[in-house]
Design a protein around this nucleic acid. Structure first.
Lengths: 349, 349
DNA sequence: CTGAAAGCGCTTACAG
DNA sequence: CTGAAAGCGCTTACAG
């Protein structure tokens, strides 16, 4: 009488249990639970539903995915999920794709090629229906080669790939022209009278950093301003990096404005400048890039380039839905705009 | 000669293909690919590995999970992945659990009971090995009942549940005492001479909001200060909410300090106060809660309660690893501390 | 409208 | 050390 059944017995309620209780075949249960178009008598359907309810039946998606070859999952690669840029993008993606029944794997590469590749392989192994590159490409030859063959295999299996960043991977894309947006901010600064403009670079091994850098150089050229290496420093897209880079530029180059290629670095720059006795924007103007949620609440409200992060995610999800529905789609192009706040004014006389 | 094989043919490389190429059974291939302890001759292993390499074989995790009843995935529920609080927590979790081969599903409930339940059911359907409640419980009777039965079913199936927030769900937990930490900040304020302290509440349907509110009331009581409803307003854990609440409190209650129950609201409060001609902290002090990355870079560097968000995630992952390894574990307790910056001083004379 | 059966891609006793 | 076979929990032609 004792021990016939341990209390910790793993009870997995399967189609079969429901079928037995409802006294029908598993095929029939499957049809009603998966909302198949195959006809089922109303009375039968009711019995099945009741049995499923009573047993607390939850169809096993792994089994379903295995046979249908559709997992209803998507894998998204970000650099760092604690970076608000990626949080907002993923939120946009999730908000839009949720209703279609897709679930998200999210993975932070930490800009480490090995790590990103490991995640890409894992996503492939989990048979995600789509691979999303929310993170910029890394500039590394081995990485490039590996990504190309992985994505190639993935697509030959019927997977779809979506690029939401400056990444070389072949696939559908939501484009944001980082070069043009960077150049637009340089124009804005020059138009206000700045001639000595410092620039804080992102990590050099990121494609997006290089694109923004190119935008900066080209705009300078177009405006007949020379590119002075003393005015350029690396800030690794972080607050601390922004602080260091700003102090370096200010002590070596006497800029009237500093343009940080993301908001985190701009915020660091403002803080460092303020703490070292510079007035912002009176002594030196500071501009950012991204317009993250908190840009408005920086030590000085930040004038920056708005990247529609949430919408990039959202438009990506819309694209995905249409592709999965078999539609022919075109890439989407999103543009930036300059948000004027208080961190930029004309240079001191 | 044409059309024998469309270029888009879905080529899924399976164990069987590798077995054929290596001229062994699928059992043998399985053993080498899954690093089984079952012995395989060195020469055979080599042949299998080569064949797998040549074909670009990637084991199908869905199939593996189906038979082993271990998916190597965990599902985490947050309120909003674009909120840095959750981003940091998820990062801590991911950084630590990654090496064990676990992958993360992440889902934002938007504090909507239906939505959270939908995600919980989905995670169950995907056979996650663990369910992680990173988000506080919602105060809703139906929600409570449903969560309890879902979690019950999940655990009876052998799933493990991990609670990293103020949530009633039964399971292993990493605890942070929100009541005590809130009370500590009240003590800090009172010790500096404040008697009229405003309080900005989080959303009332969140357990964590209520716990912080309780901490506030109790500390007041302990310090023999009365609870004045004119000094309390709701701010929904958002910047905008913090702005509104701060102005409401300041115009109705003449506080010398405002304690916002999260940093986002504190930042909103500071900005609103500043923009309305109040000096912070000279006219009114402002304290926050969380110590998010950007708290130091608020319009006035924020004095706040540090919640070890990243570590909560990290400790959760460590707990998870030990549980999955079959160890007996105890809940973890993490404590807050007050981080003094520039937004709090003694009240004006 | 219903069901028996094959099969998705793996793992794992069991036998040799 | 190797393999044949059953089975994980589903779906889906196929037959009736």
């Amino acid at each position: 009488m004792s021990n016939r059944r341990t209390p910790s017995a793993r009870e997995r309620v399967s189609l079969r249990a429901v079928a037995e209780l409802a006294d029908v075949s598993v095929a029939t249960v499957s049809r009603v639970m998966s909302h198949s178009s195959h006809p089922v008598a109303e009375e039968t359907r009711k019995r099945v539903l009741e049995a499923a309810e009573r047993l607390g039946f939850q169809p096993n998606q792994l089994a379903r995915a295995l046979v249908t070859a559709r997992s209803q999952t998507v894998g998204v690669i970000v650099h760092d999920i604690s970076d608000p840029y990626f949080g907002e993008l993923v939120k946009g993606l999730e908000d839009e794709i949720r209703a279609d029944g897709y679930r998200l794997f999210v993975a932070s590469s930490d800009r480490n090629p090995e790590r990103e590749l490991e995640y890409l392989r894992a996503f492939d192994a989990y048979q995600v229906d789509a691979l999303v590159f929310a993170a910029s490409a890394l500039e590394d030859a081995d990485y490039r080669r590996e990504v190309e063959t992985l994505v190639g295999r993935f697509e030959s299996r019927g997977g779809i790939t979506l690029v939401l960043s400056d990444h070389f991977a072949a696939g559908h894309r939501v484009q944001f022209d980082n070069r043009a947006a960077t150049a637009a901010m340089v124009d804005y600064l020059v138009d206000r009278g700045h001639r000595r403009i410092g620039f804080i670079l992102g990590p050099p091994d990121l494609t997006v950093s290089n694109h923004r850098h190119e935008g900066f150089r080209r705009a300078l050229e177009r405006r007949k301003l020379s590119y002075d290496p003393a005015l350029v420093a690396e800030g690794s897209f972080s607050i601390e990096g922004g602080k260091r880079a700003a102090m370096q530029i200010v002590s070596a180059g006497e800029p009237t404005a500093i343009f940080a290629s993301n908001d985190l670095m701009a915020i660091g720059a403002i803080r460092a400048l303020l703490d070292n006795g510079y007035r912002v924007p009176e002594d030196v103007s500071v501009a950012g890039f991204d317009d993250m949620l908190l840009a408005e609440y920086a030590p000085v409200p930040l004038t920056t380039v708005r990247v529609p992060t949430y919408d990039i995610g959202r438009e990506g999800a819309i694209l995905l839905r249409r592709i999965l529905a078999g539609e022919d789609v075109e890439d989407v192009r999103l543009v930036g705009e300059i948000v004027e706040r208080r961190s930029v004014v004309a240079p001191p006389a």
